[in-house]
Amino acid sequence: MSTTTFSKVRIQLEDFSVTDEIEAMKKVSRNIGGITTFLGTGRELSKGENISKLNFEHYPKMAEKKLEEIREKAIKDYGIIDMSIIHRIGPIDIGENIVLIVAAGEHRKETFVACEWAIAELKRTTPIWKRETTSSGEVWVQDTP
């Protein structure tokens, strides 16, 4: 869990810089002609309730492994040049960064598709869980069956 190196797949407590991640991606190849990013942030309202805090938990090793699988499949299946995926864990305040996906390709089209697929796949297959604190108490979110 270090920010000193730009590993392409990371799960970390600390915040990340979107700009730094994009700049790091641009250095991967001189053939990059388009970069699409998805940034997920802490939302205040969920199912009609005000959220005061979020907390993310993950299954170490398995979660990183799943993110690496998503990255490799995105590169292979969508023909992009590279992808990075960063997900934070631990306590996260409203408005803070949660997850970032950076998809880089020669052209924009494949990066849009790969980025959207990757965030959906992350939610479906990666063992990361969100706990919301509301005025009613704390609840684990279980959106995806």
């Binding site: 299954y59 992350l122 869980w129 959106d143």
Partner: peptide, 8 residues
């Protein structure tokens, strides 16, 4: 593992 809810 309960159903996952990572990302947003």
């Amino acid at each position: 593992l309960p159903p996952f809810s990572g990302g947003t």
